[in-house]
């Protein structure tokens, strides 16, 4: 691989890693997501130091006679898996957000409409505790 290409790839990898660190530092990217991107940056960085023979060997294993094409394909695969991983997380979060939204809607309805107070089981429990307490208060008043 020509030196000029290695310098460009090295620059891209370093820029990527610095950007990731900066995003984490500014709390715009969570650590749990950052490690995947850091890993991607590290792989690109290492690739710049791998001799051409090494890249050719990887290409040969894949059945390709063109090392850059093989490396490009590996990068494409890695990006696809990253996207899939984020889709999985997104699906889970959508489900959680839906459940949360529904809970908020039901709670809000129970607060707005007094006769719907029994909507939420926790409120129901609180009410029953209050009823027990008020009964106990009455009993204590009677004994006094």
């Amino acid at each position: 691989m020509p030196l000029q290409q290695r310098i460009v790839i090295f620059g891209v990898a370093v820029t990527l890693m610095v950007t990731i660190f900066e995003l984490v530092r500014k709390r715009r990217l969570r650590e749990e997501y950052a490690w995947l991107w850091l890993l991607a940056g590290a792989v690109i960085l290492i690739a710049t130091f791998v001799p051409m023979e090494g890249l050719s060997a990887v290409a040969n294993i894949m059945g390709s006679s063109n090392p850059p094409a093989a490396i490009f394909f590996l990068g494409f695969c890695a990006t696809t898996f990253l996207c899939l991983q984020f889709s999985v997380r997104l699906s889970r979060m959508t489900e959680q957000m839906k459940n949360l939204g529904q809970k908020v809607a039901l709670l809000e309805a129970s607060l707005e409409t007094p006769d719907l107070v029994t909507l939420d089981s926790s409120i129901e429990e609180v009410r029953s505790i209050e009823e027990v307490r008020s009964i106990e208060d009455v009993r204590q008043g009677q004994t006094e």
Binding site: K98, A105, A109, T113, L119
Partner: peptide, 21 residues
């Protein structure tokens, strides 16, 4: 009686809110 979603979640989610209610 009105149960109001805080944001648009789609027909199915609205049905499910009704089931929960």
């Amino acid at each position: 009686t009105v149960v109001r979603h805080p944001f648009n979640m789609g027909y199915g989610a609205a049905l499910q809110t009704g089931y929960k209610f």
